[in-house]
């Protein structure tokens, strides 16, 4: 039963969602919108599960004094502080806790933590990519054979696409880069997209029909 019920639910709702795409009638739309509401509700539980998992793992690391156990303390502090700031707001001349309305969003500490900690940290991590791309390009773009040479030339052309210092060959490079993006790149990407799309349809059908059961916990 433990496996049969989820399989049955997946089958019923999967078939309904396929069916709903072809049935525009109001009754089908009503059920569809009802299901959408339920998925939001279930999604919130997933969010709560994520928070609970984070707390559980961090507390376990702190209790066991595993290496680097100071970091989970910072993690938990950040989590609870943002929750506190997000629920605290100023209205009618006094501070208070507001759980249902939006006062917390304009809490200065909430905004400061987001604007001056969260945004710079995330931007910095993304900026690391520039350096990794440089070192990966230096390692990988070697003309070892014909295919590698083609890759090298294409990469150089696309990188020089918007370089303004190329003089008369600038427009030629730009047009070549455009051709590369709009013809061979497009053809290859389209083929991969079609293949991935068909793979997704096949996997989805397997899940709906109960052939693919990996998500239930046994490979």
């Amino acid at each position: 039963m433990r496996r049969q019920i989820p399989l049955m639910l997946v089958f019923i709702f999967g078939i309904f969602m396929i069916f709903q795409y072809f049935v525009p009638h109001e009754s089908s739309e009503w059920i569809y919108e009802f299901l959408l509401d339920w998925i939001y509700i279930i999604g919130i539980f997933a969010l709560a599960l994520g928070i609970w998992s984070l707390i559980r793992v961090s507390v376990a690391k702190i209790k066991a004094h595993k290496s680097g156990w100071g970091y989970p303390i910072i993690t938990l502090a950040g989590l609870f502080l943002m929750i506190l700031f997000g629920f605290t707001g100023y209205r009618d001349g006094s501070w208070g806790f507001y759980f249902m309305t939006a006062e917390g969003l304009s809490n200065p500490m909430f905004r400061h933590f987001f604007d001056y900690i969260m945004i710079p940290i995330q931007s910095t991590m993304f900026a690391l990519l520039a350096f990794f791309i440089a070192s990966a390009a230096y390692r990988a773009f070697r003309a070892r054979n014909i295919m590698a040479s083609l890759l090298l030339v294409a990469a150089l052309v696309v990188m020089l696409r918007f370089n303004p210092y190329l003089g008369p060959i600038g427009p030629v490079i730009a047009d070549t880069a455009s051709w590369l993006l709009n013809v061979p790149n497009l053809a290859a990407k389209r083929a991969i997209i079609i293949g991935v799309g068909l793979g997704m349809v096949a996997t989805s059908l397997k899940i709906i029909l109960g052939i693919e059961r990996g998500y239930l916990g046994k490979g």
Partner: peptide, 24 residues
């Protein structure tokens, strides 16, 4: 930002060319 990007790309191209010269 474009002025930074243009020159950064030139640096990457320089290293690519350097690597290929060394390889050949």
């Amino acid at each position: 930002g474009m002025r930074v990007q243009v020159y950064a790309h030139l640096v990457i191209i320089l290293f690519i060319l350097m690597g290929n010269i060394g390889y050949f």
